[in-house]
Design a protein around this nucleic acid. Structure first.
Lengths: 134, 134
DNA sequence: CTTGACCTTCCCATCATGGGAACCCCATAT
DNA sequence: ATATGGGGTTCCCATGATGGGAAGGTCAAG
């Protein structure tokens, strides 16, 4: 006697937008849900659970293809934790690399900005750096 | 008696790909260069200088619209350094925010991964977290 | 029977960048 | 002289994850 769970309901309980739910279906990340007679999608608890999984993985920054892999491992009760851990470690490395790149940019700019008086005068080490340094 | 600087030459001396040089022209970030009779673009030293400026700004992560603004300030000898500094400070804040978000993801995953034995057993705190925690 | 709030599909935009097709131009090697 | 190769040109399409919006179907309540 479960009520019909529409895409909007699924969106609200999982935090994944209806737009993205349809998108994940279109790229085969989730399987196509059942439809009512009027072609409206409706979602099972299993579907909702998967969408929740996906959202949490996205919140951790996993790219879609990683999530595809993680979902397969999730469904597989006989998976090895080593395989999951390997994906996570690769992702951690990617995150750290990106963060380091952003911090390097920030550090350079902070240094330049700290030497820039920031008043009405045109003299500016930030512009100078873009002009001269390579 | 300066030799003709082709788009490839400009690309090699500035580190901006020919593809992107044409793109920057198409979006009006740089002005259209002179053309030879056969419609080949050729670049002045001024053009090369601007492309170098753009590449350095991109290396610091500035988005194109910021660079558009910075280029205008660069050309304006009577600019105020305050305006340049304001753009830089906003960008620093954006970089720091992104870096912090990535680091938070990384920290969470590192914690989960450190508790994952990573062997043949299926038991895995990483999967558990995606499964249960919100 | 209208209104409004859903649903459907399909196309377009973002941001910066690259790939590739189809075609033109020119210098050098055969 | 001509074939070959390596430039140039324009134009379209793709990326990754997401949102906006149009055009049209469906349904419940007023």
């Amino acid at each position: 006697m479960s009520e019909l769970v529409t895409i909007r309901d699924a969106s609200m309980t999982t935090g994944v937008s209806a737009k993205m739910i349809r998108h994940y279906e279109s790229i085969g990340l989730i399987s196509a849900p059942a439809r009512t007679e009027n072609r409206y999608r409706h979602y099972s608890q299993r579907d909702i659970h998967e969408l929740g999984f996906i959202r949490k993985a996205r919140d951790l920054g996993f790219p879609i293809e990683d999530i595809r892999h993680l979902l397969a491992l999730w469904r597989d009760r006989s998976r090895s934790s080593a395989e999951v851990k390997a994906i996570a470690l690769r992702h951690i490395a990617a995150l750290d690399e990106k963060a380091a790149a952003l911090q390097a940019m920030s550090a350079t700019l902070k240094h330049l900005a700290s030497n820039c008086h920031g008043d009405n005068r045109p003299d500016c080490p930030i512009i100078d750096a873009l002009d001269r340094l390579g």
